[in-house]
Design a protein around this nucleic acid. Structure first.
Lengths: 222, 222
DNA sequence: TGGGCATGTGACTGATGAGTCATACTGTAT
DNA sequence: ATACAGTATGACTCATCAGTCACATGCCCA
């Protein structure tokens, strides 16, 4: 985690460093990201960087466990643990929040996506990822279980399986669809940072409803 | 692609090299894989390797576009373009084939998974991945469209969206589930190569049926 | 003014890994 | 035997990066 030196920096400088780090880590995989480039873009010397962070991994970890969650929270609020509302409404909200965040903060979204996907070794980073997964899985399972009790879901639904697939749908699948609608594949998404910006809000809603319906009613004929 | 020198090698030596390359590329991401280790494990000198392949990328590409498909084909046959059978049966077959292959050839499966996920730059490798995606997408869309015509699927199903999610379900989600059943997460899957071997065939069938049903009937109550 | 602590700096070190090259070996044809 | 092509070899070159360190440059207090 950042040293106190970093906290003492002027907000302006801190922001420059943060932005440079996000730009770097969001545009190349962790293994290819270099401190030299970050330092360069931020207009800070390398030695200084080591006054602020213990190293590359430390900076990355801070971004993922502190900075990104904070900004996400600020942008879309916490995912409340289903305050009793209808499962489908909650799901739609969640999807919607995710897609809107992706449209509003493409760099941060790319950063998070990279983290989800990059199969880097650094065991401690893998542990963080496991934590993220476990958290979102727990949230989903709780939601589905509630829905089952309220009779909104099939009584014999395998919640553990369904939550697994929903997680993928929420994470990867959704963005894939988004990207496709904008006319490029996910690889392209990484290359053209702001393509999502061109998606109108009603299109997003449309997509979200389609996905929710698929999960609710299935694809089979009546 | 491999030079003729490689074809001229004794099958035994060729196999040693191939195995070493698969072991390396399946256990670390492309960027971290080293020729030195491969060469070492295969008991071949580095110079020789450059007689066989143009370089690291060439070797990797050969594995993915020639070797892996050939072995997959040998193991499970081509995915016939739905010879007119029921959509659900075809889907189940496809899922099943995928899971069985994963159980039978864990290294090759890991190799393929890594390729799907690693967000490496090498533009030409990205192009190959795009090709793979396009092919499986085309297959799925054809299948779904047929099913729709035969009235097995909802008439108003958005085939493009559904195929996108199915692709994820077939690829990532399925393996995730598999891994979970065996009691480890996907990161673990990469670390414990043969954990899948402990899955009984009936459990696999069970899982496959569950997934198919979820996609068919949805999760909503009647 | 001077002493001392915090902060900044970038040339340097050391490690790693892709790709090269001069040299050596093997076999086959003359 | 000699010549020549094809193949094998591993020490070496060159680039890249994470992390260090000896030396500035401020900045506060006496």
């Amino acid at each position: 985690m950042p040293k106190t030196t970093f906290q003492n920096l002027s907000p302006e400088k801190r922001e420059r460093i943060t932005a440079a780090a996000i730009a770097e880590f969001s545009s190349v995989p962790y293994g290819k990201a270099t401190l030299d480039r970050i330092v360069d873009a931020a207009g800070v010397s390398k030695g200084s960087m080591y006054q602020y962070f213990a190293g590359k991994a430390d900076l990355y970890r801070w971004l993922l466990t502190e900075h990104l969650p904070a900004r996400k929270m600020a942008a879309i609020g916490a995912l409340a643990p289903a305050p009793g509302a209808n499962v489908w409404a909650v799901l739609e909200q969640a999807f919607l929040a995710g897609v809107r965040f992706a449209a509003a903060e493409p760099s941060l979204t790319r950063l998070g996506l990279r983290f989800r996907r990059d199969h880097e070794i650094e065991p401690e980073l893998a542990a963080i990822r496991r934590g993220h997964r476990a958290a979102s899985d727990a949230w989903l399972q709780a939601l589905l279980n509630e829905g089952k009790e309220r009779g909104e879901l099939r009584g014999d639904l395998d919640v553990s399986m369904a939550s697994g697939f929903l997680a993928h749908a929420l994470g990867e699948g959704m963005l894939d669809q988004l990207a496709r609608r904008v006319g490029l594949d996910l690889d392209g998404f990484f290359e053209r940072p702001d393509a999502t910006a061109s998606l109108a809000d009603e299109d997003i809603l449309d997509l979200v409803r389609g996905v929710t319906r698929l999960f609710r009613e299935g694809a089979g004929a009546r």
